[in-house]
Design a protein around this nucleic acid. Structure first.
Lengths: 343, 343
DNA sequence: TTGAAAGCGCTAACAA
DNA sequence: TTGTTAGCGCTTTCAA
């Protein structure tokens, strides 16, 4: 720890102090390079005394990537998404990459943003955003850039994907509610469409119809607690009277619906209407909600994302892959006990 | 889909196509550079047809920074923090910087991580982490690297700070509860110390004593819903019986306490015990909690952080600054109505 | 196993 | 206003 406020030491300085060439310094900091252990020691020593560290910019300029991974996410302040980003970020770092975070709410500037990401020679990209424009993914494809999409449609021909299968999810939700005794199902659908949320909702409705159960659609302006709550409050009372099971494609919406039902409308859950959410966010387990839901295992999902990305960064000739993450039904207090002997 | 990217066009290619020098290309992409509009047009044209974009790595190597800002955060999956990171990230991007996100739970590797951040020639750093080691900040100081700390102690001599004043917060909390009729105050304190949470708690206790109101300390293992709830449940019943006001230095803890009180212990809030939180996270406003709290304005706070950072990135000779963010009392349903005429 | 030399793609100082 | 010329700090052939 010497030098205060000086010019940062370069490999040249280290080489000089260690009495070797700059190539030797480079090798000392390149895992698996051909270098004599004792030379490496000398270099490491010198580097330590000088406080030297490899300049990632220069290295990235020379090699074909900078070790940065673009992480594109929307609705970051949402419980599920923040957990996803946390796991993804931690995992990336653990693997020796550095996440560059791009948060976007509107697709307006996203092209420009991703563009600027590309200018950093990123090693790969992860899209958790609600709607990465297809053209963008294809540009990544054109550049041969590894991409993993999380819960996104396979809009493009490029990019590995990790998804919670919408059809499976919708069907599972319908089955669960029906099995628990619901005979008329509602589904709270946000007006702003989104791959996973809209997808699950539609599949839920299809599944219910397939099983011969009448359905109603309730609308919210968008996902999110407030709008879900407002949506349920604004729903025709006749519709509410008709249903005895409600599926919300997001726990956040389910919680909003729950508060609307119980606090605003005085409708008893689960006695009068059973409610089922999706995701299993932390809040679902909070005592005041105790929400039955279908769990999306974010930790497992993130591991898969990382595996796919790392594999492809190491070998870009792999075929395009799609991984389905398993779903688990978590029954809590917003649904009734299952009848002991089927019905 | 095995495609290896084509070689990316460089400023050289653009220069050739536009019939100018590489410097001209550089100037065309440097805001405010000295270049004839028509030359700039030609370059822009050529760049567009070639799909050229400036290589930020090369640019960052040449200039003194890469346009990357390190964003160090812990507990990212927590409502307050995720909102902070969202605003910070969006703001940074709006200002033309790119956030590199480092998430850390334990201070173990943080030095190494920040180190690797520095190797990207970051333009500045924002620490929202619970405990950035002092040595780290000082290293940033040694390098003259702009740093802003959010809600962190002024451990070091370097780094601008944005804080919600602990003393003011604690005092405000005590005053509020007392004014609302509480006569014996409890404070739920996490065993793991943290600058803001522990600080606020201590100041709250001090303030209460100063005002001649008896106090009790309740313990939780750590912040977070579950442990707060468990902590309250494990509290000696006599202690609970003695207090009629409870301050929790975090809404998340307050919500955990609330669920413990109401659901686990059957204690009525606010009739028997009034509860006051801190932060005003989204969940505090949810109907099932309707938590009275002291608001920390995350949006305003983030703007301040960005302002400080940008100012310093532009002029690093500024004196060290500390900005206090205003606090607002938000009275909801976990406290009683204020008596109409004094007490 | 090592060093010399040639770039990676860009910007900045200097001349024209 | 433009082009020329040096690097920025690193890795990587290629010889030795």
């Amino acid at each position: 720890m010497a030098r205060t406020g000086q010019r940062k030491p370069t490999s040249f300085d280290v080489a000089k102090l260690a009495g070797v060439s700059r190539s030797a310094v480079s090798r000392a900091f390149t895992p698996g390079a051909n270098i004599a252990p004792e030379t490496k020691d000398r270099v490491t020593q010198a580097a330590a005394t000088l406080g030297y560290r490899v300049n990632s910019l220069a290295r990235g300029l020379q090699q074909d990537h900078s070790g940065i991974v673009g992480l594109v996410a929307s609705r970051l302040d949402t419980p599920l998404r923040s957990r996803q980003v946390r796991y993804l970020s931690e995992g990336l770092i653990r693997e020796g990459y550095k996440p560059m975070l791009i948060t976007v709410e509107t697709p307006d500037h996203i092209t420009e943003l991703v563009d600027s990401l590309l200018s950093y020679n990123v090693a790969g990209m992860i899209f958790t955003s609600d709607s990465p424009p297809r053209a963008l993914i294809e540009e990544c494809g054109r550049m041969g850039l590894p991409v993993v999409l999380v819960n996104r449609a396979g809009v493009s021909n490029w990019g590995d994907r990790v998804v919670a299968d919408n059809a499976a999810a919708g069907t599972l939700a319908a089955e669960t509610l029906i099995e628990l005794g619901a005979t008329s199902l509602g589904c709270l659908v946000p007006r702003k469409e989104t791959y996973s949320v809209s997808g699950r909702s539609k599949e839920f409705l299809k599944a219910a119809e397939r099983m011969g159960v009448p359905t109603e659609v309730l609308h919210a302006e968008d996902q999110g607690y407030d709008l879900a709550r407002a949506g349920v409050c604004a729903t025709d009372r006749a519709v509410l009277d008709r249903i005895d099971g409600l599926f919300c494609a997001t726990d956040l919406m389910a919680i909003g619906a729950l508060d609307a039902l119980r606090h605003d409308l005085g409708i008893s859950v689960p006695d009068r209407i059973q409610v089922l959410g999706f995701d299993d966010i932390e809040q679902a387990a909070w005592a005041s909600y105790d929400l039955s839901t279908i769990r999306q295992d974010v930790a497992a999902q993130s591991s898969t994302v990382l595996r796919l990305l790392v594999e492809r960064m190491e070998d870009n000739t792999l075929d395009k892959r799609v991984e389905n993450e398993p779903l688990a039904v978590i029954l809590r207090g917003t649904t009734r006990q299952k009848a002991v002997n089927g019905r």
